[in-house]
Design a protein around this nucleic acid. Structure first.
Length: 184
DNA sequence: GGTGGGATTAGCT
DNA sequence: GCTAATCCCACCA
């Protein structure tokens, strides 16, 4: 079974979307990957949407859209916007498991180690060729989310990685025991 | 095994 | 000018 996840799926609680995206598949540019690690961002102090800016406004104005931003001057991070219009939210994709298109990913990443292809937010954007051009696209065309009925086992959670504020919020989610989780 | 610094730029103050 | 939702490599143990 291969069901396209509709954009309306993203129009709900961000933390819930972050958990339910685990196990789902991203299709982009001939590559197929399974989401195994996510983080939820709303209007909390650690989120770009804590303040509405040119960059973060997409988190206020859309759901089910691609939000890509440049981090540390050299890496991109992939997010999907959530919540209803007017309330900001997005889910950061922190790690995925490669399913197909592996050779292209290896080439773009410059490594042969499968476990080092997509095991981090910057890495997976590099592997999938995701950059600023993808920012602002609606899901369903160039990039699609698919549910193949994969059974996610135990979901683990922790504080979000790389932030200094709101560390008490356990809004990082990942599939227990999965070998492709990011090194933290 | 673990730690420290550098890359590189948009968006702040 | 400073810092960031990161990654990699050199170096030490």
């Amino acid at each position: 079974m291969m069901k396209i996840v509709p954009r309306s799926f993203f129009a709900q609680d961000t933390v819930k979307v972050a958990q339910e995206l685990l196990g789902k598949i991203i299709l982009v540019d001939g590559c197929k990957v399974r989401i195994i690690e996510t983080e939820a961002y709303t209007d909390d102090p650690a989120s770009h949407a804590f303040k509405r800016t040119e960059r973060s406004k997409i988190m206020f104005e859309t759901y089910g859209y691609v939000y890509v931003y440049l981090i540390y001057g050299m890496y991109y991070c992939l997010n999907f916007t959530t919540e209803h219009v007017g309330k900001p939210g997005a889910v950061l994709i922190r790690a995925v498991e490669p399913l197909s298109g592996m050779e292209m990913m290896k080439q773009k990443r410059g490594t042969k180690n499968v476990h080092n292809l997509c095991s981090g937010p910057g890495k997976l954007c590099q592997a999938l060729g995701i950059d600023k051009r993808h920012n602002g696209l609606a899901l369903g065309k160039e990039m699609k989310i698919v549910d193949d009925g994969f059974l996610v086992g135990k979901i683990r959670k922790s504080s979000r990685i790389g932030i200094k504020d709101a560390l008490h919020l356990q809004w990082r989610f990942f599939i227990d025991g999965n070998k492709f989780v990011s090194k933290v």
